[in-house]
Design a protein around this nucleic acid. Sequence first.
DNA 1: GCCGTTTTCGGCCCGACTGTTTTCAGTCG
Length: 572
Amino acid sequence: MQNADVARYFEDLADLLEIQNANPFRVRAYRNAARTIANLTESVAHISTNPDQKLTDFPGIGKVLAEKLDTIVETGSLPQLDELREQIPAGVVQMLRLPGIGPKKVSILFNDLSVTSLHELQQAAENGSVAALKGFGKKTEQIILEGIPQVAEADKRFHIDKAKAEADAVVEDLLKLASVTQASVAGSCRRCRETVGDLDVLATSTDSPEVMNRLASHERVEQVLARGGTKQRVWLRSGLEMDLRVVPDESYGAALQYFTGSKEHNIVIRRRAQERGFKLNEYGLFRDDELVAGRTEEEVYAAVGLPWIPPELRENRGEIELAEQHQLPNLIEVNDIRGDLHMHTTATDGTATILEMAQAAKSRGLKYIAITDHSKRVTMAHGLDASRLRKHWKEIDKIRGKISGIEILCGIECDILEDATMDLPDDVLSEADWVIAVLHYGLKQPRDQINKRLLNAIRCPHVSAIGHLTGRLVGRRRGADLDIEEIFRAAADHGVMLEINAHPSRLDLDDVHAAAARDLGIPIVINTDAHSTNGLDVMQYGVFQARRAGLEKKDVANTRTFAQFRKLLRHK
DNA sequence: GCCGTTTTCGGCCCGACTGTTTTCAGTCG
């Protein structure tokens, strides 16, 4: 059982307890524990059965929750959860996803109206019985009727690239206003999460209504959902929701800190403020009613005894402790990247030639690239067999003479087949400068077989790196089930690098896996997997992911010079 | 339900906005 599955038990339990009107702090305890588990690099099943380790050593897991985890690992179920599910139908839990409807209202709908599904809820709203409930009204009825089709729709979260583009465009326009001195995106977008549910934008202005009006009439805005004196919520044409907050200049740092989150990070920061006799809110840090800090984020962190913490790390996953000890990592930056070791050309499913890719890479400041077209198993992309690949490499060799200032490696993205053999024979792979081995097919095979495939690839002496390890697609497809610890140990033993695939729909390794790989000393490469010249521009998202994992320049192999990078290759 | 360099009990972040109220609870971030 994967940690994500175990975490799910506690998340479901928290939802159900909330509807039952349980103690909110008890509910939070379950959610915190779920988060801890989802962020673990070791499997809970392993820790639970290992006599040398204690689950209670992990934050937010006490005696009670540790016992429940043991039960889940041992039996694959949790009696308490089963009981609650019998009392509260799944359709009732689904109502929690309606915007504007929380556990209290869901509880009333279920207990007083006996609705047990979105369908029944719609009928109840249409015949007026929802509006007649105490605490409900015409507006609530309308919110429910509008929300039901939205819930039925798929996940509302957007990939980071799209979210960031939307936010940047609006921020840029707000900054053009005379009254606006500072503006920034905040929230999960500023933390560079893989996906963003909605956008938070912050601005300082002497004329709040001007800013609000500008956003309300912005060409990207479809509809204004709510508007007060300093806060406005709009729905963008792209489908994203955006919150705008306007604060005075002297509050900008406090507001930016506050709205960047994460919620979990902020809870700890606020507690630190409290312990020091302050009150921290989005307007600043106050002693009694006197503003002590708030103009910059640095001021706010300094007031609670910490250096500034990069937004990507603000998840309460240990960054506050590191900051306290002045051991925050010096995070890798986009400009540190010197090479890109995964890209395609017209030889398979790319849209640009070798020369065009090399020129585009050079113009983006890269010093070396690897051309890695598909191997033959990927028939849809017209993957290369041995003879076409050798011709392709000769072609690359010719191009080397036509462009200076950038090194080009003869590479291949070689499929690891379902039977755990490589898609191309050893003698061909041995001629490559760079082999990136990947799973494309049979991702649903059982864990043992997936592991066997990856371990075989890692042991193959010609393989340089494993690309997009799990094969997951962000928000669309879960990755293959694999034993991360075993794979990582093997990669460390054999000197095989692991890729952070920078494409916003992959970002694989994820942040948790990348941190675990780094801890084992495995060199990480961040690659674009570009299928066009513009595809090279996604490098930044891979770097964001690396930053979220706390990686430094030295942890990432393709920040090295070409000469240094070559030395990392185990067999060349 | 978790947690503890004053604590094993009594805390657990804090404010804006909305809708349904006639002073506030619920929801959200």
